[in-house]
Design a protein around this nucleic acid. Sequence first.
DNA 1: GTGAAAGCGCTAACAT
DNA 2: ATGTTAGCGCTTTCAC
Lengths: 334, 334
Amino acid sequence: MTTLKDIAKAAGVSHATVSRVVNNGPKVGPVLRDKIHKLIIEMGYRPNANARALVTNKSTTIGVVIPDVSDPFFATLANGIDKVSRQQNMQLLISTGSLSAESEREAINLLLERRCETIVIHSKKIADDELITLFKAHPHFVLIDRYIADIKDRCVWLDNNEGGKIAARHLLALKHRQFACITSTFDIDDPKLRLAGFVDELAKANITFDSKNLVSAEPTLQGGEIAAQTLLASGQDFSAIFVYNDAMAIGAISTLEDNGYSVPKDVSIIGFDDVLLARYSRPKLTTLQYPIDLMAQHAAQLALRNSQEPRIATNKLKFIPQLIKRESTSTYFK
Amino acid sequence: MTTLKDIAKAAGVSHATVSRVVNNGPKVGPVLRDKIHKLIIEMGYRPNANARALVTNKSTTIGVVIPDVSDPFFATLANGIDKVSRQQNMQLLISTGSLSAESEREAINLLLERRCETIVIHSKKIADDELITLFKAHPHFVLIDRYIADIKDRCVWLDNNEGGKIAARHLLALKHRQFACITSTFDIDDPKLRLAGFVDELAKANITFDSKNLVSAEPTLQGGEIAAQTLLASGQDFSAIFVYNDAMAIGAISTLEDNGYSVPKDVSIIGFDDVLLARYSRPKLTTLQYPIDLMAQHAAQLALRNSQEPRIATNKLKFIPQLIKRESTSTYFK
DNA sequence: GTGAAAGCGCTAACAT
DNA sequence: ATGTTAGCGCTTTCAC
């Protein structure tokens, strides 16, 4: 590849001068400037970002750790970060790692080696303690979708508990009194928090949630189908189901309708996340919106701000899911 | 950040020795090796990838140019590339650029500056000629989702024309004889090719496609809804619709059912792409599978192979969409 | 086995 | 306004 020196040689000047032209630096005569510009185009010169990063100690790169690019949720997250990256003339470096703490750690390390300006981390497996240590050592890290009290000004998170409460209030307002829940078997906090919020809000209305009406499965469409089958087989009574996420909710609806139940006539269903699918399913899914795109943008901004002095933390950190009322819930009357 | 020199100083050795340890190089005594290893952990040393890239002229980075990370199609594409990157211990650098040739160009340039080992490019806007020049200059580029004869051994593409033919054959086999098409207004080759294949295959069966039954709209769910309305309003007769993509197909179904038509009883619908949605829509969508994940993996492998001598091009380059028969098409009888 | 030294391509301070 | 120089952190000869 053409280098600064090549251009300098061709122009008969020092490479410092070429550098000035490339960076729109001052103090270069207009004649020379033009000549060099022409040569740059002609010879197809592209500055070497690695060399630049080395000397300036700036990589113009923003890293993101997510489990999987293809999952729509994470794709949206990455896209949110990309939006603010572009706006700041930075680039997105994605490091996928999941399933295990080890692979999350590895993903972070790779980004560290790249000397990313800042890193937005989605981590569910690494323990709190380790994350705290890591974040203390790296002020330019930001945690997304997880709240850890010790580093709370570095966390951009959704109030899952409140989400559960909102779901409960919605169903309660529709006169439902007998509930079932479908939750996720995954060992992370989110399902527990959502469920706890839901049950607590029920309790406030003097309704004790019967744990016989709680079923767990994998947080997928198939998981939702299976969970609904289990629920049906149990013979328990309920008129509304709070489901861990939209995929499961749509699976549950599918099973319910296959078994002669109509949604929402016979059973109301409320999901969580508001993925694309929720809008296109039939009936359209009532759900709680997880504003991941917005959260990712905030996280990126916070991260970028944290990567430069002075640190100012004015960003919004906690997000509340919003009820999106569609067609899968309706008033109970019998 | 800790550097090689820091470690060297702490260990009382030269930084060359530390470098050898870091890279598992030969000729380092076991005692020293251990001591240095310990210091590396202790001091939290991470090699600077930028410095490495500079001296080795290898960035261990694979770049990808796509319009948008959040679109499930491109997310899947990126994920396919990520899979082979990880496998090769490389990292994914995403450069988003779309809408205009200018922004695609810019996205490519940014990746060029990063000195990516190789770049997989999805470009719909840059003209053939320019792309050809670019590819000749950069042997490590690979083009995905587009076929250009002059650089055909660098293109990983889907035979859209054949896809249209397969759709026609399927509908013909189901005894349909009157067709409508919904296509995309986007000025790219794909919709034209799909349509041409469809119409050609019809012609082979002695059926002339009536261009009055062709409607274009944006390739989105809303576009599909609008297109179907237009089709309905036209009062034309048809028993089957070939739709540009799944999103439009699902939109069209929605409009059709809202207007009292049942799919597939009254009208058969066939989509294109086989996105996640296709499996979850009601009725489940019959469609042509776009194996983008697989294609992306092949593209990445081809790219990686092209980036190192000797160049061997044994990869599969052309992909044929596969018919996925679900519930939105059925036999015509009246 | 280990160290000294050069140099990757660039920026930035310092000369002129 | 332009050139000279040092050095970013690293790998890689080449000596010893």
